[in-house]
Design a protein around this nucleic acid. Structure first.
Lengths: 360, 360
DNA sequence: CTGAAAGCGCTTACAG
DNA sequence: CTGAAAGCGCTTACAG
């Protein structure tokens, strides 16, 4: 890049020190028997001469491969497809390296099924695990067992924050909720009643977003009254009913001015209820660029969604594992924050290729 | 990744066909003398057996290196720093490949200086060029000359659309303008007068954004009246004065409800004028996450900026060149669209590390 | 027009 | 505890 001199090789380093290249390898990569004295001498000299291994040569020479397993739900396809593509593209990118990514599917985003797969894994069958945890706590013991066996576990999209997973890759959920509140507050001009709906009570992403949402309104839009609605899991139908109920039972002099829900699939349930409530305009900020949500964004029923870049989450997870196993980086950020994008109608270029999951 | 069988090598392919590996290489990589007949036979068989070269082995073996030159302005640092970091990080990522990226700085984003550097380049000194064109047309003949000599030219951040550059990496400017209009229209609830200010008349990014802005308002917010203001180049002071003038001369019964400007540096000039106009709230959507704009986002004077992911633009430019020279991909998208993000106060995690350029 | 052989910078049995 | 040598899958002079 800069006018840096050609990098030094193990051969030159070996010659300089009067030892063999095999010894260099043992010293620098901690393999097998070597006297502490020579190890240290070699390490120091390598440092002095600025030795850095040629990673592609290493990759070409290595005989054993790091085995990564990624557990990804099949449904809802419109959401997990993007994470999957990110994982696949990154894996293909590293296809020539001693590094393989195998994908295991669960039928849906379900704790029991996910736990079954993880139970059968151990430190001899894989070196790394990519996971979208279906529960914020219930997988901790399995994750911790794997971590104890030397498996590097990465949580993607949602987190198991108290487990021994190495890294979480995804949204800063608190800020995501705050962002939705900020926009909703602006659109409502800081006035009126806003209905706040929950997702799953046991999914970290959902609870944290609502926390951020409420905090932001309280701090910056004190005149907005928050109407706390029920958890709707990730179920559009329940979200639909909750919104209908709130609209119908609101006193005429204090109507609903805005709606919030902390989940992507719930968002289009909310949107359907609001569409039926035309022509009264109720502001609504949801989550995730799902095909159903895009439809309502186009028609104006959804003002905006906050997006989390699922493709990049998948891609970055593989990259992080590559950095660990191939580049042998030892430091790993606990949080890799991706995607906190406000998506409006004009943010969407065209319909995503994959179809929708259901006829809702 | 999947349970794909081990990839076939040149050695096996050669054995299968009863030729040498050198011949395989000549056939597949179009090097030197080879009879059309054997070339075709080898190509067909390679296809049948699904041969794909091991790219890291290739990189390790190659003796000549692709030379990439990137021309990046030093000022304004707060903006170009990010592009530069993207370029540097990507280049470092490929440090072991026969692929070098050299950065040449201009002092500011200036046509004359930029053209001087390009004039001294040719097909023997470099293979690829990364450029943030300082003019939408005036560099065309130099770009075309380089393209004619086999240099792959990539425009980043702004475009020279009628030149023979291979790819433009950056925003869809029309949509960026539309997005700003959509948000401003929503915030103003489709009512009132909106002042639209220009940037440089010769920078593609600026003119196209304003085009998109005007179209969106006309199509979706027909009741908004557009007040067409002057070009302010990229000068905060001129933007400041234009806004002051418009506010002062607006008739009391038809005040300014919103402001738009198509440039990032202009945005903080607008914001300063609006801050002085407190407490009347005038909506404002600008461009780019510059430190000065972040300040006004925090205080609420700027409602939002539309962001273009400069880091990624730099990174992707290097990656595209790598794909061409190392992976030898022959197809290249003419447009790689990055960053069309709406940034609100809560989108910003913390102040960027680098300082500001001037005391404005 | 084609092939045999050396080499890129590492890792890894194998021998001592 | 240490070294000599083969090998990863390509490219590239060199020879024919």
């Amino acid at each position: 890049m800069k006018a840096e001199r050609r990098r030094i090789t193990t051969r030159e380093l070996a010659q300089d020190l009067g030892v063999s290249r095999a010894t260099i390898d043992r010293a620098l990569n901690g393999r097998g028997r070597i006297s502490e004295e020579t190890r240290e001498r070699i390490a120091r000299r390598a440092q002095e001469l600025g030795y850095r291994p040629n990673l592609i040569a290493r990759s070409l020479a290595m005989t054993t491969s790091a085995r990564i397993i990624a557990i990804v739900p099949k449904q809802p396809a419109s959401f997990f497809q993007s994470i999957l593509e990110g994982i696949r593209d990154a894996a293909e990118n590293y296809a020539d390296h001693p590094f393989s990514v195998e994908i295991r599917h669960t039928s849906k985003h379900d704790l029991t099924e996910q736990r079954e797969i993880i139970r059968r894994l151990d430190g001899t069958t894989c070196n790394g695990l990519i996971l979208v945890p279906a529960h914020s706590r219930a997988l901790n013991s399995e994750i911790d067992r794997l971590a104890g066996e030397g498996v590097m576990v990465i949580c993607v999209n949602s987190d198991a924050p108290e487990s021994r997973r190495t890294t979480f890759i995804g949204q800063d959920f608190i800020r995501a909720g705050r962002l939705a509140a900020e926009l909703l507050g602006k659109l409502a001009r800081g006035q009126g009643r806003v209905l706040s709906l929950g997702g799953f009570p046991d999914i970290w992403a959902h609870t944290q977003r609502t926390l951020g949402f409420v905090r932001e309104l309280e701090e910056h839009y004190p005149e907005i009254e928050i109407l706390h609605g029920p958890f709707c899991d990730d179920d559009p139908q329940r979200a639909y009913e909750a919104v209908r109920g709130a609209i119908d039972s609101a006193p005429p002099d204090r109507p609903i001015a805005g709606v919030y829900i902390s989940t992507g699939a719930g968002s289009w349930g909310v949107a359907r209820a609001l569409r039926e409530n035309q022509p009264r305009k109720i502001h609504f900020v949801g989550f995730d660029v799902l095909p159903e949500n895009v439809k309502y964004l186009r028609s104006g029923t959804i003002d905006a969604v906050v997006e989390q870049e699922p493709y990049r989450q998948g891609y970055d997870a593989v990259e992080q594992l590559h950095r660990h196993f191939i580049e042998r980086k030892t430091e790993h950020a606990e949080y890799v924050l991706t995607g906190l994008d406000v998506i409006l109608r004009n943010s969407i270029p065209e319909l995503p290729e994959h179809g929708t999951d259901q006829q809702f």
